[in-house]
Simulated scan of single mutants.
Amino acid sequence: MSMAAAAAFSVVEDPGRLVKRTAAMTIGVACAVLAIKYLAYMVTGSVALFSDALESIVNVVAGLVALWAVSVSYKPADSDHPFGHTKAEYFSAVIEGVLIVLAALLILREAWGAYLSPRAIEAPLLGIAINGVATAINLVWAQVLVRKGREHRSPALDADGRHIMADVVTSVGVLAGLAIAGATGWSILDPALAALVALNILREGWKVVASSLSGLMDRALDAQEEARVREIISKYGEGALEVHDVKTRIAGRAIFIEFHMVVASSMSVGAAHVICDRLEDALQAEFDGARVLIHVEPEAEAKQVGVPVI
C-alpha cells in the first residue's frame, strides 16, 4: 500500500473529542473509587476512611463540572464570543476548588465528632487492603489526567489530575496511620488522621483556585516559552528592522501572541505581508493553534533601530 493510500485510511482523532472522552471517563473512575472507599469505611467504621470517601464524592461532582466545561470550551467562536470559549475550563477548576473546601469542612466536622466519641476500628487490615485498591486506581488515573491536561492545554483535566494526585497522597497517609492505629490500639489516631486529610485538601483546593484565577487574569506564557517566542521572531523576522512590544497570554488551551513589527517605509504591503506569514507559520508550528497578531509599522516608529527583537 502506498503512503498516500495509508494516509487516506489513517484517522487523526479530534483533540476536542479526546479531551471530552477523558473527562467523561473520569466520572466513571471517580464513581468506582467512591464505591470502593465507601466499602472500606463500612468494613472498618473508620472516620478517616469516611473522610477519604467523602473527598471522592467531590471527585465525582468535579468530573461532571469538568465535562461540562470542556464541552463548552470546544464550542466554535461566535458573534458573542469571537475569541472562542476556551476560558470555560477555568470556571471548572474554580468550582472544583470550592467543592474541595466544602469537603474539607465536612471532614473536620466528622473528625471533631470522632474525637469527642472515639470508637475502635474494626477489621483494619481488610479496610486498608480495600482502600489500597482505590488508591492504586486513583494514582494511575491522576497521571493520565495530568499528562492529557498538559498535552492538550486543558486546565480542567490538569486541575482534576492534580486534585486526584493529592487524594492519593492523602490516602497513603491515612492507610499508614490506620496500620499504626490497628497495631497500637490508639483510636485517637483515627480522627487525627481525618483532620490531617481535611487540612491537606484545603491546601490543594487553594492551589487549584489560585491557578485558575491566574488563568482568568490572562496570565502570560512562562519565561522559557516567552524566550522561545523571541527566538523564533529573531530567526524568521528577516526583512524587518525591529520587533517590539511582544505580548503573550493564555486562555485555556489557546495562546495569543502579539507584537509590533517595524519595516522600511519603502517596503510594499505585499512584502511586509510575506514576513508576517512567515512569522505566523513559525510561531504556530511551535505553539499549536497559537493566534498571532502583528501590527506593521514604518521605520519612523522604531524604538531601537537595528535590534530585531526587544
Rank of each mutant, 00 (worst) to 15 (best):
E151R: 15
G161E: 03
P155L: 05
K148Y: 13
R150Q: 14
G161T: 02
A159C: 09
M165R: 14
A166Q: 02
A159R: 06
A156K: 09
V144I: 15
G149F: 04
R147H: 09
R153V: 09
L145K: 05
V144S: 07
A142C: 06
V144Q: 06
D160L: 14
G149C: 05
D167R: 02
G149W: 05
R150C: 12
L157R: 09
L145D: 00
A156R: 03
A142D: 01
V146T: 12
V146E: 08
R147Y: 09
R162T: 12
A159S: 10
M165P: 04
D160V: 06
V146A: 05
R147F: 13
R162W: 11
D167T: 04
A159Y: 08
A142K: 00
L157W: 10
E151K: 10
R153M: 12
V146D: 05
V169N: 10
R162F: 05
D167Q: 08
R162H: 12
R147V: 06
R147L: 12
A156C: 09
L145C: 03
M165A: 15
A159V: 04
L157M: 10
L157P: 04
K148M: 08
Q143F: 15
K148E: 14
V169P: 05
H152K: 15
L157H: 00
H152F: 15
R147K: 13
V144M: 08
D158M: 14
P155A: 07
A166K: 01
Q143P: 02
H163V: 05
A156M: 11
G149L: 02
V140I: 13
V140K: 02
K148Q: 13
K148I: 06
V168C: 07
V146W: 02
L145T: 01
H163T: 04
Q143L: 11
A156L: 11
H163E: 07
V146K: 14
H152W: 15
R153G: 09
V146C: 06
A156D: 06
I164L: 10
A142N: 03
H152A: 14
R153E: 12
G161Q: 00
Q143T: 11
Q143E: 11
L157Y: 10
Q143C: 11
V144P: 01
Q143H: 12
L145V: 02
V140M: 11
R150S: 15
E151G: 09
G149N: 05
Q143S: 09
V140L: 06
H152M: 14
D158S: 14
V169Q: 00
S154N: 01
V144T: 11
L157I: 09
V168K: 01
A156W: 01
R150N: 15
M165S: 13
R147I: 06
H152P: 13
